[in-house]
């Protein structure tokens, strides 16, 4: 499947990555090469195969409903890039 610069820009926006105008051709070309690699998947028939999300057919374990964590805000927020009064800060969001 071929991919256009516009496709790449659309995907980049979904992934919140900015691609500069000057990088776009090369990014598109390399991206296309990777897609060419994975297009091989189309050559195998898997009609009846159940998709595999995880190795080994294990089941989810459950945790008892107990509060095991106490407030550790100071340590956990120590490397926050912007904070005030216990809040993480981001530029004003207008809904």
């Amino acid at each position: 499947m071929s991919v256009s610069p516009q496709d790449v820009e659309k995907v980049a926006l979904l992934a919140r990555l900015a691609i500069s105008e000057s990088d776009l051709p090369e990014v598109t070309e390399r991206f296309g090469r990777v897609l060419g690699l994975v297009d091989e998947l189309n050559t195998i028939d898997t009609e009846t195969v159940v998709p595999m999300s995880n190795p080994h057919d294990m089941h989810q374990r459950l945790r008892p409903d107990a509060v095991t964590r106490q407030n550790n805000r100071e340590n956990l927020m120590a490397s926050a890039p912007a904070q005030d009064q216990g809040y993480f800060l981001v530029p004003k969001v207008i809904d």
Binding site: L41, I44, V49, V50, P51, M52
Partner: peptide, 15 residues
């Protein structure tokens, strides 16, 4: 379907 689901199916085939 064409990529992710397909890849998960092929993953089982390989396994």
């Amino acid at each position: 379907d064409a990529y992710f689901n397909k890849a998960q199916q092929v993953r089982r085939v390989i396994t």
